[in-house]
Amino acid sequence: MNVTLTDIHRSFGKNKAVDGVSLQLGTGVFGLLGPNGAGKTSMLRMLATVLPPSSGEIALFGRDPRGTAARREIRRRLGYLPQSLGYYPSFTVVEFVEYFALLKEMPSAAVPKAVAAAVERVDLGAKAKAKLRTLSGGMLRRVGIAQAIVNDPGLLLLDEPTAGLDPEQRVHFRSLMRSLGESGTVIVSTHLVEDVGAACSEVALMSGGKIVFRGTAQDLTARGEGHGVGDAPLERGYSAVLAEARS
């Protein structure tokens, strides 16, 4: 298992962002759904080892990230795209991705080729030398994805990766996620249930800091039959589960 969470809690003051989550994940694309404030971003930040849990155990690639050496080893195999991508406007696309490849301690000789591959995978080859300040929001999102995948991560954490992407790019990105999920674990936090339906082999739905549903996209669709609201079957499943969790 690449990810093992045991009774994870995380509080900010009196607010419980994550409240007793336990999870085991192997390879594949795992969708994390939930309304605003459900705890998805806190969960991803804990998995990215940037936010320590208040209590509970996290094991990534079988190692405890609380130890410096283990955390460093985990981070080398980690790809992370935060919900709000910060960037350095004066860097070019290639330089920004290269910078993160270096921070991820990739072998120096392998960096140029890995950077080029990552940039091509997000379809930004033509903009490789463009300064980030000149790119659109969707392109910047793709730069963020490129830096996340540049080290060919064993665990890829994507927080709202398709926000701002046009339909063509979203289709392309779903294909990329499926491809990455064949060799590692991809965790996608999103509001867009169609992304989950198209790319995720497994889905979890969070509400109030807890996982209130776990299964396949088909299972979630089934939960919405005859219940829930929404235009698509998956949306109806989503709303039905949420309504049940809140009742």
Partner: peptide
């Protein structure tokens, strides 16, 4: 030439040197 055609260099500078080059190049 696209970025995919970047050849693998025979010798690569250390990571810190590469990062310093970036910082130097894009400094204010």
């Amino acid at each position: 030439m696209t970025v995919m055609s970047v050849p693998r260099p025979a010798w690569a500078p250390p990571r810190s040197a590469r990062a310093l080059r970036l910082e130097f190049k894009r400094n204010a």
